[in-house]
Design a binder for these strands. Structure first.
Lengths: 125, 125
DNA sequence: GCGGTATCGAGAATTCAATATCACTAAGGG
DNA sequence: CCCTTAGTGATATTGAATTCTCGATACCGC
């Protein structure tokens, strides 16, 4: 099964490289359609799935919201979810001692921090 | 619209008071059925909705998982999600400075921390 | 260029949490 | 105890995200 280099896949990859933040399927669709007008949502999902299983992208799950996707291999970071525009942004820095908060006997393997509020664009308006 | 005191509603309330941790609809169903054998999932959802709008319960949203519910009015805290048994537990303590991590210009209003790993029961086995 | 086939696009289908429907049950005031 | 009706249980339905189907398209090795 040879992997071909299609416009669609290229446009989706480029979308992530330009965005610099996690993107949802419909965000990707809207942005990548500027490059590939006929792009369909099925192709977006198909491509996301492939890029994730190829290790190029990572799934970003958030409370009460559909998954976002971001480039794999980024340094450990967390996320900011804007309540106005629903966009998600990366947040640098990490309260590493959070793992100590687990009750006695619990084995903590990972953690996630999500901030909620208004992004700079929405806080201004 | 008079509110009646039914066995079902009482059993569901008692379930939360005994659990001491956030519960999902099916967890509630299973536990409360020990008291009210015929209990149906529709009643669980109906009752949860009512108790939330009455301010008795709060919704706990978690990444990539159906909502849990917990008693309202608890002190600020966070959550631990066990990857083995899928149960959620409360975690005391809070890295308050996390809100400072937001990028410049962002207005942070709230935050959530979720720990992942094995709860004490699952870590032992 | 040609051909084989990976990939695409549109729409149908699936999944699963959550809600609605409706005939039946039972809480509780009189 | 009786009657009204809030509440219940089983099941159908919804809604949103995601996946599948299938005929059409376009990579790319030859």
């Amino acid at each position: 099964m040879i992997t071909r280099r299609t416009q669609q896949r290229h446009a989706i990859r480029a979308t992530f490289e330009n965005a610099g933040r996690p993107l949802g399927p419909h965000e990707i669709l809207n942005i990548a359609r500027d490059v590939v007008p006929g792009l369909g949502i099925a192709t977006v999902y198909r491509t996301l799935k492939k890029l994730v299983s190829d290790g190029e992208l990572q799934v970003v799950e958030l409370p009460g919201a559909p998954s976002r996707y971001e480039l794999a291999g980024l340094a450990h970071h967390h996320h900011f979810h804007c309540r106005d525009c629903d966009r998600v942004f990366d947040v640098e820095g990490c309260p590493e001692q959070v793992t100590d908060y687990a009750p006695p006997g619990f084995r903590t393997e990972e953690h996630a921090v999500v901030l909620y509020g208004r992004c700079s664009a929405c806080a201004t308006g």
